[in-house]
């Protein structure tokens, strides 16, 4: 295990134009994209799908135990960026990611990094609830089982119960743990997916528009849950809804056409955006 502080590179001096051969970004990001003691530090990320440039030289730090919201119009690259952080883009054919993503002193974007422990550390919740076609219990137990966290059945039961409790689902499902995960309602399914992610005990949770397929009541429950989880986890959430971003996050980043336009304190971004584009988006002129 790496010691976090000693191996961190200096985070102060990132120049968009020096590190990698990229198309020069047309914007200089407004706001504090660098942090003093970040959990994850992304430097100069470029993502291409085949010939298409999806993210163009983006740098952004993610702090400890914060909720970072990423907003922006469709196709602005916010989901793509999120998927870089736990290397989910590896599963997409023809997708190439360059740049540095530093975490615990390691560049997790380097090809030598094993994605298995990385993804155990950086969990992910997807846009559409995707419970496995197994029982509720099996869904939650999946991660602990494959990673070998438990030796006895009792231990496993304990993890399942705790994870479901933390995801606020325990009361609703404790009597029907053996029913298929797909039998739950949409909001419950998404909380099941969160429980499934928590069960692996990650440090960072990435959420890719977790409420876009849900009704307002289910959304409210999940937002509450995110607020709760903030104590123990670093959370990055991509969202379409500005209200959601303002409700759950401390920091907000605004993406536009593959570039990070503005990042800063959520209140500041919504009350007093510094960039015209951000302002236009937030005031609903496009989006």
């Amino acid at each position: 295990m790496m010691s976090l502080d000693s191996l961190l590179p200096e985070t102060g001096s990132i120049d968009n134009k020096t590190d990698h051969k990229t198309v020069a970004p047309s914007f200089k990001t407004v706001g504090e994209f660098k942090l003093k003691d970040p959990r994850i530090s992304c430097q100069n990320i470029v993502v291409r799908y085949g010939e298409k440039l999806a993210i163009n030289g983006l740098s952004l730090d993610i702090g400890r135990n914060e909720v970072l919201a990423m907003i922006g119009p469709s196709g602005c690259g916010k989901s793509t960026f999120l998927r870089c952080i736990n290397r989910m883009n590896d599963t997409i054919e023809g997708c190439r990611v360059t740049g540095k993503i530093m975490m615990d002193g390691q560049d997790i974007n380097s090809p030598e990094i094993d994605t298995v422990p990385l993804r155990a550390q950086v969990g992910m919740v997807f846009q559409k609830p995707n419970p496995f076609p197994k029982s509720i219990r099996e869904n939650v137990a999946f991660g602990p089982k494959i990673h070998g966290f438990v030796e006895t059945k009792a231990e496993l039961e304990e993890i399942v119960e705790n994870s479901l409790k933390r995801a606020g689902l325990w009361k609703e499902v404790k009597d029907r743990l053996d029913q298929p995960g797909t039998s739950l309602s949409g909001g419950q399914q998404q909380r099941l997916c969160i429980a499934r992610t928590i069960a692996v005990n990650p440090e960072v949770i990435l959420m890719d528009e977790p409420c876009s397929a849900l009704d307002p009541i289910a959304t409210a429950i999940i937002e509450e849950l995110i607020y709760e989880l903030k104590k123990d986890y670093t959370i990055c959430i991509v969202t379409h809804s500005m209200q959601q971003a303002s409700r759950v996050s401390q920091r907000t980043a605004y993406f536009h056409l593959g570039e990070l336009i503005e990042v800063g304190d959520t209140k500041q971004i919504f009350m007093n955006p510094k960039n015209r584009l951000t302002e236009d988006y937030i005031t609903g002129r496009f989006g």
Partner: peptide, 13 residues
């Protein structure tokens, strides 16, 4: 693909 992503996202090989 969402199911595969779900498993990969949990760190499954």
């Amino acid at each position: 693909q969402a199911l595969r992503d779900g498993a990969f996202g949990l760190g499954a090989t």
